[in-house]
Design a protein around this nucleic acid. Structure first.
Lengths: 322, 322
DNA sequence: GACCTATCTGCAAACGATTGCGTTAAGGTG
DNA sequence: CACCTTAACGCAATCGTTTGCAGATAGGTC
């Protein structure tokens, strides 16, 4: 059926072990023999059988990437970068989607566990305890979740949230709301903490909310009645949904209420009013996570975020410029 | 190290072959034995080694999914649906991204070929001839490319384009432009054909263009000078970029020029002005493609598209309503 | 009770690669 | 020339499953 190492051996007049070595340990085979073997392999269009290889070596050269929701625009750039990084080192990437469901998340980890060398787990919804337990079965890198002892890549959302708050303060806002993310989200917790600790601001927290446009729309009435002039939303999708919902209620953004998002996703970038948002280094995170996994290094990496000021924020109504 | 079929056999007092059969051919083993084996497997937390299995059976239970650009909002819903469909049948999904590069596309197909049971190739940029040749090495399903003899799932973009054109005609437009997609795109060709055949319309084609926001921005000056009052763009991203670019040039959408996109992506859906666009059944396509692959059926499936009229289209300036 | 059939289970040979060990030949050293 | 080292390669066991074949047991039929 398929061309195997044996065919190549026969065609080049050497033993299979020599063929194997020309691929996996070239320095152990004579240069002349090597070229002969490579020529035969080329001519027969030989491609090593990865299943056989991993059966023997115990390594698969595969990586699993699990995200909460593939359709959330935050993830595709991360996936793209992760895939590119994996491919650079001859790894292949399984991708899966939990639908924000912790149970499905665990199932996916277990389903992947025997078939990958490691898993990149993005924005997990499982508890720390559950993750620690799983980490005994398969090695992984956590993105946007910090657990002592596990390899993590997190984005400094707290600092981003602070910058967002300072931006609102500098515009003259005094009472703002946080439209929080889903329960189980580490970033949402970090943002919440940072927001509540901002001096000079009255803050009210609304949530947890679904991290989608719908979540934002649903939060709009509460924002309209909360007596706030500024809002920090869990992500761009929520921010956009919120703007949408506020518009229906006759509340103008940024005229009546300023809105800041999180992620700097393509969807937010192309929205009107152009969204003021906290940029997240998603591509860097994806790349770093798989690099860490492949080098099987344990590390706790923090990536910087930064505020991008665009058009969805303005001074509160009736505010005199300083 | 890891718990194997042998451990389970020992623990439940049967031969390994019986354990194997309780998993892959349960009807061949006595109900009582089966429960005993399953209990032992459960207790030992046994998980079959897929590498060993595929080495023996020649099947991997993996599927590859290749798209032009993961960051293009058209693809994530398709990927999400494909992954869900695969998972339902205990398949896992490799995902990769060609960066719109035909050479990389071919490399990816070859890299996947020995490690998957089939490949879903979305919006390929390779030539028909190259694809036919590759199809001898590995079975695949083509999405949005039609080749006789190969299994395909295409969306009826021609009909969508016609609907878009008719919409423009009915609004009173007489001269419109098509901002085409990249070279090698089958959908772009189909759209072009449909547009050029629309009666009662002068049409001008601009392109090929990059299927991104930048592509749209770059096309804006040409549109501004083309003397057209309506535009059909290759996709939502191009449409949005175009609107952006036209705005800079002082051309209002839809006041001066009406713009229609393609895809009905989330990014387009949330854009302002709300984008009139041709909705593409991307999720259906993703699901169908992997189902066809797993059933290894050959078929040529056509999925319907439909026009979604929103706010980026209007009668041309100075046009009297009928 | 002899014979047959249907069920269930065990045996052992694969699948395609990797790798520790042993053999060979070539070359270097005193 | 005897001895040793080293480079290059062959040999064969092994990874964890699957599966065709055969043996065993039980039950049914005449």
């Amino acid at each position: 059926m398929s061309v195997t190492i044996r065919d190549v051996a026969q065609a080049s007049g050497v033993h299979v072990s020599t063929v194997s070595r020309t691929f996996s340990a070239p320095h152990l085979v004579n240069a002349e023999t090597r070229t002969r073997v490579l020529a035969a392999a080329e001519q027969l269009d030989y491609r090593p059988n990865r299943a056989a290889r991993s059966l023997k070596t115990g390594r698969t050269n595969n990586i699993g990437l699990i995200v909460a929701d593939l359709a959330n625009p935050f993830f595709p750039p991360l996936i793209k970068a992760a895939q590119a990084a994996a491919r650079r080192q001859d790894y292949h990437l399984f991708v899966a989607d939990t639908g924000e469901d912790p149970v499905e998340e665990e199932n996916l980890v277990l389903a992947f566990s025997k078939q990958v060398d490691g898993i990149v787990l993005c924005s997990p919804r499982l508890s720390n305890k559950a993750l620690e337990k799983l980490s005994e079965q398969v090695s992984f890198v956590l993105v946007n979740r910090r657990i002592r002892g596990l390899t993590t890549v997190v984005m400094d959302v707290a600092n981003g949230a602070r910058a967002a708050m300072e931006h609102l303060v500098s515009l003259g806002h005094r009472r703002v709301a946080l439209v929080a993310g889903p329960a189980g989200s580490w970033t949402s917790g970090e943002i919440r903490k940072a927001v509540s600790e901002t001096p000079g601001l009255d803050t009210v927290v609304i949530g947890p909310n679904s991290p989608t446009e719908e979540g934002g729309i649903a939060a709009a009435p509460m924002i309209a009645e909360a007596g706030v002039t500024g809002v920090l939303a869990y992500n761009d999708l929520v921010a956009i949904g919120l703007i949408e919902g506020l518009e229906v209620l006759g509340v103008d953004v940024p005229g009546d209420v300023s809105v800041i998002g999180f992620d700097d996703s393509i969807t937010g970038r192309l929205h009107r009013p152009k969204l003021t948002t906290v940029a997240m280094p998603a591509s860097d995170a994806g790349r770093m996570a798989v690099d860490l996994l492949i080098q099987s290094m344990s590390a706790a990496t923090v990536l910087e975020t930064h505020l991008v000021v665009r058009e969805s924020t303005a001074p509160p109504k009736g505010h005199r410029a300083a």
